[in-house]
């Protein structure tokens, strides 16, 4: 791949997904693009890039962007945030939302579904929530992973990294060598294709946002912008949960870490000047 080709790809990816590539990743880019090259009948990556530059290459651009994504995910990834969701966040929300009896959760980079399904399994274990309306909205930029998520079928390997055996027994059925999540849990999650770089207000307001292991691939400015826009979709007493290697500290002042709860953040109270803006104005802005 020539440096020009690589730069072209970097720009495309950054524009489309926010993903930032560095030069050490060149081999990875080639690995991931070769299947696309073959699938669309090109001979080389150079030829693929020529096609990407042609007008009306939008479908191809989507395909290339998706091929470059890192989609790795696990059930109950890192355990701790999910324990906190079960032990702190949900009990608190059950108190605070007892009138409305509705809670909205968002998995903002849901990949193949392990994260929102982990949340759904936890919600299902709260008998007190049986007659509440719990919306679990799961979004990702990539249609390919969302298709897998919607099917809810996982390999033996995938169901053994983080999923307690009791949960496997309770919520999965065996289909040959694979495991399918029960209809009950599957129906608790709504999957939608959505790009974090675009208007988030269409998704509505949430009480809890899991935005894990995606901001880490963005550059500073994109992270800050995404955090600010996520903030606008989060209830003032809601929670943001980031990945184990991510933080808002030193990056954005719209969230503050929750003391002693690693990975948990709360929105900072809005300054008075903003609170004075006409109702309905906030949250409607398109980035």
């Amino acid at each position: 791949m020539t440096p020009f080709d690589f730069d072209f790809l970097c720009k495309l990816l950054k524009e489309r997904s926010g993903l930032v590539l560095t030069h050490e990743k060149e081999y990875l880019v080639e690995n991931r693009l070769m299947p696309v090259v073959r699938r669309v009948g090109c001979a080389t990556i150079a030829e693929l890039i020529q096609r990407l530059k042609a007008p009306a290459a939008d479908a191809l651009k989507v395909e290339v962007t998706e091929a470059m994504m890192i989609n790795e995910s696990f059930f109950f990834r890192d355990k701790n945030p999910f324990d906190q969701f079960r032990d702190t966040i949900l009990p608190e929300l059950i108190e605070k939302r007892s009138k409305r009896r509705r809670i909205r959760l968002w998995s903002a980079a849901a990949s193949s579904g392990q994260e929102p399904y982990s949340l759904a399994m936890m919600v299902a274990s709260f008998s007190r929530l049986a007659d509440w309306q719990i919306d679990i909205v799961a979004t990702d930029i990539s249609n390919e992973v969302l298709e897998k998520a919607r099917a809810g079928i996982y390999s033996q390997f995938e169901v053994q990294r983080g999923l307690p055996i009791q949960m496997l027994m309770q919520h999965f059925e065996q289909v040959g060598e694979q495991w399918r999540i029960s209809d009950k849990v599957r129906k608790m999650v709504q999957f939608r294709q959505h790009n974090l770089l675009t208007d988030l207000s269409v998704l509505g307001m949430f009480d809890v946002v899991f935005c894990r292991n995606v901001l880490i691939y963005f550059d500073q400015a994109t992270k800050v912008d995404a955090l600010e826009r996520i903030r606008r979709q989060l209830a003032p007493d809601g929670y943001l949960i980031l990945g184990a290697a991510e933080t808002v500290v030193g990056l954005s002042d719209v969230f503050a870490p929750v003391p002693d709860k690693r990975g948990l953040y709360r929105p900072k109270p809005k300054p008075l000047a903003v609170a004075a803006v006409k109702p309905g104005a906030a949250g409607a802005r398109v980035a």
Partner: peptide, 10 residues
């Protein structure tokens, strides 16, 4: 690797 064995073991 089947649910029946898993259930027995648990």
């Amino acid at each position: 690797n089947d649910l029946a064995h898993i259930a027995r073991a648990m």
